[in-house]
Nucleic acid binder design. Sequence first.
RNA 1: GCCGCUGUAGCUCAGUGGUAGAGCGCACCCUUGGUAAGGGUGAGGUCAUGGGUUCAAAUCCCAUCAGCGGCUCCA
Length: 737
Amino acid sequence: MPTITLPDGKAKSFDQPVTGLEVAQSIGSGLAKAALAIKVDGVTRDLSAVIDRDASVAIITAPKAGQAASKEALELIRHSAAHVMAEAIQDVIGRDVLLAYGPPTETGFFYDMFIPEGKKLSSDHFDAINARMAEIIKEDRRFTRYEQRGSEGLARLKSEANKYKVDNAERALGLASSVYRGSKPAFQGEAGGGARDPGSQSLSFYSTGVPGTNWEDLCRGPHVPSTGRIGAARVMSLASAYWHGDETSDRLIRVYGTAFPTQAELDEYLRQKEEAARRDHRVIGRALRLFHIDETVGQGLILWTPRGAVIRKELQSFIGAELKKQGYTEVFTPHIGGLDLYKTSGHFPYYKDSQFAPIVERNALDALAGCGCSCAEMLRRVEGVSARLAAGINERTGAPTIAPDRVIPDEQLIDGFMLRPMNCPHHAKIFASEPHSYRDLPVRLAEFGTVYRWEQSGELNGMTRVRGFTQDDAHLFCTEEQIPGEIQGCLSLVKAIFATLGMKDYRVRVGLRDKDSSKFTGSPESWDKAEAACIAAARSLGVTFSQEPGEAAFYGPKIDFVVKDVIGREWQLGTVQVDYQMGNRFDLSYTGPDNKPHRPVVIHRAPFGSMERFCGVLIEHFAGAFPAWLSPEQVRVLPISEKTIDYAREVASALRAADVRAGVDEGNDRIQAKVKVAADDKVPYMLIVGPRDAESRSVSVRVRGTERDLGAMPLEAFVAAIKAEITERRSELTVRP
RNA sequence: GCCGCUGUAGCUCAGUGGUAGAGCGCACCCUUGGUAAGGGUGAGGUCAUGGGUUCAAAUCCCAUCAGCGGCUCCA
């Protein structure tokens, strides 16, 4: 005779087992109507689930009109929508489409499926699928759960010849023959996923309607009570995915969709997606001529065009000024370094596969030739980026290409240089170039250092994922006692940057060591202290932060800044990392008060992360409409006709004399066209100058985003006002006549 | 790297086996116009690259390269 405890603490007793719906009804009919599912002792279950024991129960409800749905409600709706989409696809393509996994995601859901040989699923089918989904939702069929004994259920699935479902069921029953290779846990509440918790004796199925008559799927649940509760759903896109995320396994089609309680919310989501696409930094970057990628130069290599270079330069000056205040010193170092340097730092050969191939010295080639190495062998060694090639194995056939006794170990392979993948080895050498007393510490070496990494070609993306990029890097060589203070200094820098740029939506991730793992170097006591310092510093920021055990670098804990852009994607930008390893590897030391040598601890930090990625994110953040201080062209002077071109030039030179970036549109277009072009170029201020303005030595000021000019003001007053706005790096356009 | 889609003028794109197209941009001319495109003329292409099929290929096939969307990865 269960006693149900509700979230507000009230208890209700029932004489007999009750369903979730009955609990809701006993509270109120409105609640029962809005109910989607229940949470029993923290576990989400169907509304029809029977509660036969004392439990705490919460009702998950659809949102009231005008309110946003809870995360749980959205997940239920989307997971249920995954079933509806799968049914719709089977109706459109055929019942022989094999379903695999269909979990909800942050913005919707997907369903992985295998399309049989000879059939095709393409975006051409989307209209038909969407129409069918709408019908199923309109039919408002009940989600009906039923269970079968494990053996029966399994036999049934086997008879349906869907090996993916059989695998799901076997894993659910705890007799998984296939090993889930991915390290990620299985999705919660996935359609078609493990039907119950592993080890269970039975399997659960859901019919969208009447079992045996309507569509069914092996599923753990829970679901909304009926398809009508889904509201609005839509298939979005297709992608490929591998079974279990394993690329040697079957390739499946991943069909993405999304669902919302109401059509209005779905429409709003689609509108946001369009807005996000409109802000794509690759599109805006081309339109505003900010950067260029040329395939002859190379994939993933950014050419900063004059306008983009202005933005980067402004950001660098901004951070440079902050660094000066914090006592940093600037250094310059080359983009390459000897291979031995990276053997010392541990980058080579350990991270060889994500670096550009070494630049081989002529002498080294001669030496190889001198020891009887054939041309073919040398070529393989020189071009051998892959471990297999270097080991003398043909990549395709796997056959040996070089006699095993002729294979040279990695460490002796090549003498030459590497394009640097990180700046720290160079900075370590600068630190080591002279003796240091504890009195000198911390030594803070800063450099906008360009590094090169061999990102996989499929990963490259505009400015945000590239092969050559410039970090706003610095290394702080300090004593262990100085760590907390230095971390605080780094964080205040990052905070200042985000505040100035108006980036409010960010969170902090503190990567800690996994105490059970042996891959972390350094003493546990040092780690504890450094981790405590990172956590304290993160907490002091006053934004959400998470502690993530096991996510530390092997050499020390770290703090990452994750910024959310308008598309809802998260970007890891700034980072602060404590490093206990570098001192050892490079044998760094300082003389302590005891007159003995001590190891410095190194803090790596890069508030922007990389200039390329940061600018890419900024372009999307501002949709190309930068605040005045960052704008490549801050003012454009638009003469009404040729008659006022001279005055327009005069205005521009006055602005340039005051260090304001100003251009003149000297074209013979009419003023309407000039305004349009300047607006398209997102120039913050347009100064319209005609005979009236020339006469009174004033300018008619039109601010970006407004419909007309806001009136005339004296030229000198405008110069002074915009100068102040730029110098203070204001995020809004504030100059007004 | 893997899978799918795409590659035509500086940009955005049309062109499904038979003479290479449009809009924007660019150059020049007319227009001298007060707030989101005034009009005309013209230049500009080895249809990504390399093979193949065909009397004939931008178009069909194969390979390579690059871009896009995913997957996997990111010290």
